[in-house]
Write a protein that binds this DNA or RNA. Sequence first.
DNA 1: CTGAAAGCGCTTACAG
DNA 2: CTGAAAGCGCTTACAG
Lengths: 342, 342
Amino acid sequence: MAVTIRDVAREAKVSVASVSRALNGNTNVTDATRSRILRVAARLRYIPHSAARSLITRRTHTVGALLPDLFGEFFSELIRGIDLAARARGLHLLVSSSHGNANEAAAALRAMQGRVDGMLIMSPHVDADFLHRNLPDSVPAVLLNTAVKDARYSTLSIDNYGGARTMTQHLIDAGHRSIAFVTGPDGNYDAAERLRGFQDAIASSKRKIASEVLRGDFSEESGQAIGRRLAATKTRPQALFAANDMMAIGCMLALIEGGVRVPEDVAIAGFDDIPIARFVHPGLTTVRVRIAELGRSALEQLASQVEAPDAKTASAQTPRCEVVVRASCGQSAAAARGTKPL
Amino acid sequence: MAVTIRDVAREAKVSVASVSRALNGNTNVTDATRSRILRVAARLRYIPHSAARSLITRRTHTVGALLPDLFGEFFSELIRGIDLAARARGLHLLVSSSHGNANEAAAALRAMQGRVDGMLIMSPHVDADFLHRNLPDSVPAVLLNTAVKDARYSTLSIDNYGGARTMTQHLIDAGHRSIAFVTGPDGNYDAAERLRGFQDAIASSKRKIASEVLRGDFSEESGQAIGRRLAATKTRPQALFAANDMMAIGCMLALIEGGVRVPEDVAIAGFDDIPIARFVHPGLTTVRVRIAELGRSALEQLASQVEAPDAKTASAQTPRCEVVVRASCGQSAAAARGTKPL
DNA sequence: CTGAAAGCGCTTACAG
DNA sequence: CTGAAAGCGCTTACAG
């Protein structure tokens, strides 16, 4: 059906080897035969079969990305960073997402075998044993935001702990003496680390801070529910720090709707700095994770491992987060120590 | 380096054919030999080479997506729809984006050859001749939002014209007698169709409407610039309809910052209904494009073409858009005819 | 039930 | 400079 290299060879009256050479521009072919081959290839609308080529060259010029999701503010940004860096290096992207359990993730990872030169992996189902079973040692991989500590893999992580700690300190410095923290879903690594940062900041503070932990699940709705509850009570914390922006926004809008003023009555802070954070009113003070930057770095590390498979350069990086001060905490940027406004 | 089917065959003391059969669970293999093979395969951590398998089965279980971008509100939603439908059918996604020109797009499309069972194509660089040169007739493709009319390809389009026309009529019905339209970038098909819808609605209106066309480029900044200009003048239109939401939002925020009230002084409407639209203050009245739905439909059409290559079912669909009424036009949902609130 | 062989579409030493 | 041949890792008629 489709036209192959043999068809071109036959029509151009040369061997397939010559067609291959002419098309790849590599080795010695006469200008005459080369141009004849190119003409025939164009006429037949020949398009090389990438998979067949990969099979023998051992290069796919493709990286795989195993992600929990493809959409939403966070992943959109992450993919953007990955894509930018991949394009700059002429790499394609094979994506796989939304694996409900470890088996699905394993199937996805295995299906990539032979189709990618390396893997970018971010998944709650991944641990060292999982990788050992489903990823050949010969395939380079970079782990994103995982708890796995394996010397064979480079890892890149969000500074959940440090970011949460810095934000909590910022709230304390701003004068708040009772602070509530809204958690993410149970078992979520990022959420747990952010909570830990909050608690350590409270515990190590020189001042006495009343703290409280409220349960959320990262969804806007869970924030909303908390906001409504808070609006209906009289004993509100002075500040509320949500483990992600969507909950902070849901909570803030529900509070305002319930007649509570933000930031005058309650200060609100989030985590992530998703694009919406600067569009809500008041603008949301939050911890900025340079998500796209994270994706870009991850891809570049992976690419360098693909190019130099021997260089044992497994590293663990955790780029610092920064607090972005907006109106929802009722503080001018200048008053914040060591932070940077948008 | 990597373990292959031959290694498993040797260790299990069978032929590669038997290993293949056992692993694919297809044909007749004794339970004894099958379990022995499976045991050996697990011990050696054998993972089949998908590309090699595809070469002979002629099935990759992967669809390619050629998109202008991977990120941003619009594409994030589109990919979400595509991904959901692909996952439901066990298909992988090979994506390629951000092609600055036709040559880059051609290279991307060609590189997919042999790695995908079909293509989802959305690109400003694509026309019938382009497809003829860079896509074998044997590869099914579904075109998204393109001007190409080729009986060989199914197309799925956003109802830019109808949506813009309905929104314009909505503004007229709301009593606005002078309306400005903010265009998208030159040469952009969606932008041109939206402008055409606006102009036709104005032209065919029974009432006399003063209209004006302002130049934007789909960016928030271009909307901002227009908003600032409008805030500084006295001769403002009663309503402003931007060709996309980001411009509408940029314009709205700049107007408000300049002391102009929205919707009291100027009503504002956008196009797309990106997630941010309901978070800005006031909420943005806009045309909802069911983006994820578009992606889902496109993938399902493609999948059915892949499964039944002969069924010549090329179709052209244009799902209707709907006007979503929020506060930025100063009208209650009930007052809008034939529209649906969020 | 099992194996030897051909072949998917390509690239690359190896000769000439 | 050019071609015949081997081989990448797999699957599948074809025999037995």
